[in-house]
Amino acid sequence: MKKPRLIPSLVTAFLLLFLTSCGYHNPYVYSGPEKSIYIAEWKNRTSELGLDSQIYRSLARWYQKSGSLHVTKKKEGSDLILAGEIVSISLPSLSYRSNRDAAEVKLTLRVRYILKDIATGKVLVEAPSEYYTESFLTSSSSAVEEENKKQALEIIIKDLSQKIYQRTLVQIPKL
Rank of each mutant, 00 (worst) to 15 (best):
L16V: 12
V144P: 01
S142N: 08
L94A: 09
S53I: 12
K174V: 05
E126F: 14
E76I: 12
S66E: 00
S31Q: 14
I89A: 04
E76H: 10
S58V: 03
I157A: 02
F14E: 03
G67W: 07
L175Y: 12
R100C: 02
I157Y: 04
L80P: 03
E85S: 15
V29I: 15
T20E: 01
I89T: 10
L6F: 13
E76G: 09
M1S: 10
Y131E: 09
K116I: 12
V105I: 15
R97E: 07
R97C: 01
P27T: 09
D117G: 03
I164M: 09
E130M: 14
W42A: 15
G77V: 08
S142P: 02
K174N: 08
P92S: 08
E104N: 10
L107P: 01
A127G: 01
L124H: 08
R57K: 12
I118N: 06
R97T: 13
K35T: 00
I155E: 08
K43W: 00
Y165G: 03
Q64V: 02
P27G: 03
I7Q: 01
L94P: 00
L115C: 03
S9R: 11
A103T: 04
S161Q: 06
D52T: 10
A127T: 14
F18D: 00
L10A: 11
E134V: 05
L82T: 03
S21I: 06
S140K: 13
E147D: 09
Y63V: 03
S47D: 07
I37F: 06
M1K: 07
A83L: 06
D101N: 14
P92I: 12
D101R: 15
I37D: 02
I164Q: 03
L59E: 02
N148A: 07
L19W: 11
Y131F: 05
S141K: 13
S47P: 00
S135I: 07
Y132V: 00
R61V: 08
S95V: 06
A103R: 15
N99K: 07
E147M: 12
V105A: 02
L69Q: 05
A83F: 02
L94S: 09
V170R: 15
A152H: 08
R57G: 00
L15K: 06
N26T: 01
E126D: 09
V170W: 11
R100F: 14
Y113C: 00
R45T: 00
I156T: 11
I37M: 12
I164P: 01
V71Q: 07
L137N: 13
V111Q: 04
V29R: 13
N148T: 01
D101M: 12
A143E: 09
T12G: 02
Q64C: 01
A102K: 14
V11K: 04
R61L: 06
K116Q: 10
Q171Y: 06
K158G: 00
R100P: 00
P33W: 09
L94W: 08
K75C: 01
K43A: 01
A119W: 10
A152I: 13
A13V: 11
T108W: 05
